[in-house]
Amino acid sequence: MKTKPQLQEKSKVIFSRKGMLDGFLKCIPLGLGVFVYGIVFGMLAVQAGMTPLQAQIMSLTVFAGASQLMALELWAPQLPVLALFLTTLAVNLRHLLMGAAMRDWLVHIPTGRSYFSLYFMTDESWALSVKEMASGKKDAGFLLGSGLCIYAFWNCATFVGSSTSFWMDRYLADPAVLGMDFAFTIVFIALLTFFWRGKAQIPVWMIAALTAWLAFMLFPGKWYIIIGGLAGGMAGALRNA
């Protein structure tokens, strides 16, 4: 079972500090974007009734932007623990797909390293890493390095946001001024462009776009990411196999 020809071809995958550093450095521009949202989280967390310490603990352990912001919606003197758990699970189900997509790197390095790296995987570091993997790079340390970069920015930002409202009032009240509200879209568009291989992809991407848009209109939360990703993957599988 384990000795498939496909796997042997790709067994040159390594996991080095050089790869980690490369991932960390390349992720800094994305980290800056995360920083802005981290400040917003820190500030809103305190307003929602968390102490700065609690907000920091959450950023250090849960480490998931969308889930943490949604948790604030549910935050109350009597915590709805089960609702928090289920919401977090639903919001992050997309990471199941993203983790599976990192297969070509992660099945070839020691299991412990794979599962440690995955703890730090975010949308941003995943997108950067999967592009790196698709372009033929073989150093799986990149995923951990880029994840640690986002982790550092997210936690510093949580600290800044929860401990002071100064910056938000003065400079970040309107992120649109700096184009920061659109920065994530820009990053994901650039990364998507790197996946362009030719016109054969157009129908697959159209199906992903259409289903994602429909799901976005119909369902709350981030289900549209999972639904669009699955629909595009299935469209590709039907065309190619």
Partner: peptide, 10 residues
């Protein structure tokens, strides 16, 4: 095909 589709969906 899934990674690009996820990006499209995002």
């Amino acid at each position: 095909h899934m990674p690009a589709s996820i990006l499209v969906a995002i």
